[in-house]
Design a binder for these strands. Structure first.
Lengths: 203, 203
DNA sequence: ATTATCTATAGATCTATAGATAATGC
DNA sequence: ATTATCTATAGATCTATAGATAATGC
């Protein structure tokens, strides 16, 4: 018998391990390739299991996607105090290559390319992020706060796509990019400048 | 607009008109569906021509895509003074539904989902936009200006995707969204605030 | 006996091509 | 005669399923 290893031998009958391997492989591929360009055979191959098992355990490709992004897509959201959410999210997005932590977030974002895939789960996750970002906006107008948060989430989506496609912007100074993104995000989510605010600057 | 055929049916032998119809149909579908989810049969059907003609005139699907986005993708860039580029681009993006003017821009952006499709043409167009946006940045550091412009283009991509998918953000107040986007874009592309600006390197 | 895994393949696309048909030009 | 258009289909995927095989539990 082989001694137990971290990623474990999959051939041995172990339904739970097979499920986990498929979920992990799915998350990786969905994050880097998007839903459409990820094939079930590629997921199964990466997981080291027969592709028929994907259907046995998840019904279909969309079932795997939904479960893969549901599991821990809120990880970033709950990885620290809400105060640091902006900085933490940006850092996660830009460090996707070094750590696998961003995969659920990326998978959610990239799933957006396929309009009807995992709609309810994806919508729910996107709403969670939008709601959390909206909480950072200091305004009594909730609709406005949500609008700004949605614009920010769109930005994260665009950046993640640009980096995985070969559009410009994937190979540049990441530290500077983070700084610029954070600065603009604060302008987006922060208080309106006095010239645009409803009441004029009193002092 | 969906089936507007200028002069008579396409059945009449007219290679030029057939080409134009395929290009127009391709632009529309590539803009709204992206490259992957657009089928050659759907393009041909929308153009009202036999699908075999697409291959006759453009070689393959990618050939159609490349020619479709090359034709007038720089339209927005050249539709007015560079001074107004930011405002004009944002307005074009948000008014995509009312006018077909944004289709080339959207097609370029959405083509980003498929990493290798029309790579050279797409890269060239993206570079044109990035370069134009970078020109708006008032800094002697060209690399930094390009970086900021790339982040902005990524934002446009994310917004266009969010609006065509069912992610949140597609049905909200567009006037307010434009205002927020412009404000944050100015923070991104504009001069750095004094607190963050450092001494010029090597001064 | 149960069920995790594997083999083999159906069925549905989708891109692309070969060759037939038919409308124009000479 | 040339060539734009159409028919029919090849060939390559890809998702999904039915049923065989083999490892575990009772």
């Amino acid at each position: 018998m082989t001694s137990a290893r971290p990623s474990g031998p999959i051939r041995t009958r172990d339904a739970a391990a097979t499920r986990r391997a498929l979920l992990a492989a799915g998350r990786e591929l969905f994050a880097s390739e998007g839903f459409d360009r990820t094939t079930v055979r590629a997921v199964a191959e990466r997981a080291g299991v027969n592709q028929a098992l994907l259907f046995r355990y998840f019904g279909n490709k969309e079932g795997l996607f939904a479960e893969a992004i549901r599991d821990d897509a809120l990880e970033v959201l709950e990885a620290g105090p809400r105060r640091d959410l902006l900085e933490r999210t940006v850092a996660t997005l830009f460090h996707a290559s070094s750590a696998a932590d961003a995969e659920p977030l990326l998978a959610v974002l990239r799933g957006a390319s396929s309009s009807q895939i995992g709609a309810e789960v994806r919508q729910q996750l996107a709403d969670s992020y939008v709601s959390a970002f909206a909480d950072l906006v200091d305004t009594p107008d909730r609709a406005d706060a949500v609008l700004r948060a949605e614009l920010f989430l769109s930005w994260l989506l665009g950046i993640s796509l640009s980096r995985s496609a070969d559009l410009p912007g994937h190979s540049l100074d990441e530290v500077a990019a983070q700084a610029h993104l954070l600065r603009a995000a604060r302008a987006l989510l922060g208080p309106l400048p006095a010239t645009l605010a409803t009441d004029p600057p009193g002092s």
